[in-house]
């Protein structure tokens, strides 16, 4: 007898770029939540691990006419032909059919980094070292998230440990579906400007679905058809036009274009 016990949903995120101040709270909250260790002594933006990362993009104009925008970018949770999943030789990337979350399985990962090359959003990070915290700081690790070992790739998973907690809550009260208020990723909770909205895109009553359907909404690199589940909002046209630019991790090939 086979039974389906999990309600199906398609979790997604909407980030209002008109509200983001680029403060970095989301990046830090994400690192605290997901047991990402502090950078090593000579860490750079290429060797560091920042599942959630804020870029500054501008309209390409020079002083004093430059307009800038802060763009938080994490795994865009591609819903179609998920590039990292299709290239992984180890089957270490998986799209959860019940939630739509693109999961990374560090135990399976062999560290070839093919997925990093395949990811159009540069949202994947490689563990060049074993995770290390300053002496004693291990006590401040999140008990709900396992640290990853050296030689594997990792990325945002919409704080799956918080989904676990929400499911436990639901089970303890006998509900089958989780309470949306119980499942809020760390960056969403941390944003002082309330710029990030999270929820089930398939639930037509959800705030996130309404925002994603609005006129201000766009997705990065929508033309390549990966159907990301992370949407961005802006009333500024030049910001919405950023969607066609290549988001890259180094400055030389930066979003500045």
């Amino acid at each position: 007898m086979r039974t389906v016990t999990t309600a199906r949903s398609r979790y997604g995120m909407v980030i209002d770029l008109d509200r983001c101040t680029g403060c970095g709270s989301c990046t830090v909250a994400c690192s605290v939540e997901n047991n990402i260790p502090p950078g090593t002594e000579n860490v750079t933006e290429r060797t560091g691990i920042t599942w959630m990362r804020v870029y500054e993009a501008d309209d390409g104009k020079s002083f004093p006419d430059t307009h800038s925008v802060f763009v938080p970018i994490m795994c865009q949770q591609c819903g179609n032909e998920t590039p990292c999943m299709s290239v992984c030789p180890q089957n270490a990337v998986e799209v959860d059919p019940a939630t739509g979350i693109v999961g990374q399985i560090p135990e399976r990962c062999l560290g070839c980094r093919y997925c990093m090359a395949a990811c159009p959003y540069h949202a994947r990070y490689f563990n060049w070292w074993d995770p290390k915290w300053p002496a004693g700081m291990e006590a401040a690790m999140n008990p709900d998230v396992a640290p990853r070992m050296r030689g594997v790739v990792e990325k945002c998973n919409f704080c799956q440990s918080r989904l676990h907690t929400a499911r436990e809550r639901a089970a303890s009260t006998g509900r089958t579906a989780i309470d949306p208020a119980d499942y809020v990723p760390a960056c969403v909770e941390a944003c002082p400007q309330r710029a990030i909205t999270f929820g089930d895109l398939d639930d037509s009553d959800s705030f996130v679905a309404a925002l994603a359907a609005g006129d201000r909404a766009f997705r990065f690199l929508s033309r390549i058809g990966t159907e990301p589940k992370v949407w961005y909002l802006s009333s500024r046209e030049w910001v919405r036009n950023l969607s066609d630019r290549v988001v890259a991790r180094t400055r030389k090939e930066n979003v500045r274009g």
Binding site: G22, C23, G24, T27, V28, S31, V32, I36, P37, P38, G39, V43, T44, E45, G48, I49, T50, R53, V54, Y55, E56, P134, M137, R251
Partner: peptide
């Protein structure tokens, strides 16, 4: 500040 703040200093361009 916390050693973890490398995330927004060295590891990204936030600060």
């Amino acid at each position: 500040i916390s050693p973890l703040m490398t995330k927004i200093y060295q590891e990204s361009e936030v600060r």
